[in-house]
Simulated assay, not measured.
Amino acid sequence: MATITTASEDFDAFYSATAKRLVATVYATTGDLAEAEDAVQEAFVRAWQRWPKLTREGDPLPWVRRVALRLAISTWRRTKGRMRAHFRHGPQRDVPELSADRVALMAALRQLTPDQRQVVVLHHLLDLPVEQVARETGASNGAVRTRLSRARKVLGERLTENDKAFRGELSGKGAIR
């Protein structure tokens, strides 16, 4: 009985320490908060089912993150049409307004391929080294570096365009310069 309680407490502590950051990671990858929350929840359910094995093998976070990202991307691919309808009709009225920087970043991330977006999130938002990103994505180090390079180019162009448009809009409305 003590083993079950200890495993449960260990899992609860792991969940508490990692869930929010994992949701943020998956959200940054997919652009859909609800899908990110669902994928992370399902990944933690699967982790609990394998908890003894995952903890014996070391840190369970990379496994949970990989499962959550794969679930989210699979769901994203299946529900692409539904997401288009959501964005066409706009956000729900009770959702708090996002900062212009966050909106610009999420729009720029959507311009990337799913593979590029995943490596950008893992490397730049989670500060994982290229080698670990390669292990988690199943790609070679060279492929990860190539995806990062191409993604940085696209992001640099998009974020610069958004920044110029935003500054032009502000100066045209007489805002503080």
Rank of each mutant, 00 (worst) to 15 (best):
D115Q: 15
P62V: 02
R88S: 14
K53T: 11
A107F: 01
D59Q: 06
R88N: 05
A139L: 13
I176N: 14
L148D: 04
T6G: 06
W63R: 02
F87P: 04
E42T: 01
T29S: 12
S171G: 13
E9N: 09
R84L: 15
H124S: 15
A85T: 11
V119R: 07
R152T: 09
G174F: 08
R152K: 15
S99T: 00
G156D: 10
K173G: 01
R46Q: 15
A151Q: 08
M1R: 00
L33Y: 12
I73T: 04
E136I: 13
V45H: 08
N162V: 00
R50M: 03
V67G: 08
D127M: 14
A151R: 11
R135V: 08
S149R: 10
T18Q: 10
T3P: 07
M83A: 09
D94H: 07
P114L: 14
D127L: 12
E97L: 07
F11M: 07
H123V: 03
T55L: 05
L98N: 00
H124V: 13
E157I: 14
L126K: 04
V26M: 12
D10S: 11
F14E: 12
L109K: 03
L155D: 02
R65L: 10
L128C: 01
A36P: 05
T3A: 15
D163W: 00
A108F: 01
A68R: 07
S16H: 10
H89R: 13
A151I: 07
D127P: 04
H89S: 09
S149P: 14
L170C: 02
W48N: 08
L170A: 00
D59I: 06
G90Y: 13
A134E: 05
T55N: 11
F11T: 05
D59E: 08
L71H: 01
R158D: 03
R56Q: 08
L109P: 02
V95W: 05
V40Y: 11
V64H: 08
D32H: 07
Q118W: 05
A151M: 10
T113N: 12
S140M: 14
Y27K: 01
S74P: 03
F14T: 02
T5V: 11
T146W: 04
D163M: 01
G156K: 11
V64M: 15
E35H: 05
G31F: 01
Q49M: 09
T25V: 13
G172A: 12
A2C: 03
L112C: 07
K153D: 03
G174V: 06
T29E: 09
S140W: 14
E161S: 03
L22E: 13
T79G: 06
V154P: 11
L105T: 05
T137Y: 13
T113K: 15
K153T: 08
L155A: 07
W76L: 15
A108N: 01
H124E: 15
W51N: 02
P129N: 08
V45S: 10
R145S: 12
E157Y: 10
L61C: 04
G138N: 04
G168F: 00
W76G: 03
Q118M: 15
W63A: 02
A7N: 11
